[in-house]
């Protein structure tokens, strides 16, 4: 056993225990750790944004002689400045130009990317043979996939009442949805337990030194 002599490790261990203390009940130590986290995160993000984004992608090329198409950086810079007009009610309408540019860009990107990756490719991947000679396992997998896609789509078809054949198909679609929700829940449990394991590993290894991971 070799307990850490690193001050930073002790601070991290103390903050971890402060956060864990919320599991017993809300308390000032938990509140302190929570507020510290919010403050430090805000400061960290400002520094990252300045040195990793604003400086290399805007300020540096805009102020360096010989940068090709330098006018573009001034347009970008002006749009950035316009966002801050929201702080002044009389001029806040100017920020809408920047917001309009952002929304337009993201909408365009999303539509084209989504159409290719989520519609074309996924429809293509669903067009599979339902019977493959000599491979009953793959055939069964394909059948489960196709039936799942069709029944789930029918469940989300609300222009006709879910009765009779449509109702039965939609009920099968619900079973598929339930299985997917169960899988998602199982994965979520795994994720949360992993976070706990990560913190325990830190406490046992980096801080207390009673186990090595």
């Amino acid at each position: 056993m070799s307990i850490s002599t690193d001050f930073g490790v002790w601070v991290a261990a103390a903050l971890t225990l402060f956060i864990f203390s919320f599991l017993y009940k809300d308390n000032p130590l938990y509140k302190f750790a929570e507020h510290l986290f919010v403050g430090v995160s805000a400061g960290y993000i400002v520094v990252q944004q300045f040195w990793q984004v604003l400086w290399p992608n805007l300020l540096q090329p805009a102020t360096t002689a010989g940068t090709p198409h330098q006018w573009k950086y001034f347009v970008g810079g002006a749009l950035c400045v316009l966002l801050f007009t929201r702080l002044f009610p009389a001029a806040s309408w100017l920020s809408r130009y920047t917001i309009a540019a952002l929304i337009g860009t993201f909408a365009g990107l999303k539509v084209t990317g989504f159409a290719q990756a989520e519609v074309v490719e996924q429809v293509r991947a669903t067009m599979v043979p339902l019977w493959i000679n000599g491979d009953p396992v793959s055939s069964l997998n394909h059948l489960i996939l196709v039936v799942g896609v069709i029944t789930t789509l029918v469940f989300f078809f609300f222009s006709k009442e879910h009765k009779g054949a449509i109702g039965a198909t939609a009920r099968l679609g619900i079973w598929y949805l339930m299985v997917s929700f169960g899988a998602a829940y199982g994965f979520t449990v795994m994720s949360r337990i992993s976070l706990l394991i990560g913190r325990f590993m830190f406490l046992l290894d980096d801080w207390l030194g009673i186990a090595r991971f």
Binding site: L109, K110, Q116, E121, Q122, R124, A125, A184, G186
Partner: peptide, 29 residues
């Protein structure tokens, strides 16, 4: 959505379990 199909990139993914169910359709495709 933005890169794999557009630039014909061979891609692998490591993800958190919360996100993993959303990635399986891409794996299947």
């Amino acid at each position: 959505q933005q890169v794999q199909g557009r630039f014909q990139v061979r891609m692998v993914s490591g993800s958190t379990p919360v996100q993993a169910p959303e990635i399986y359709p891409y794996l299947q495709a």
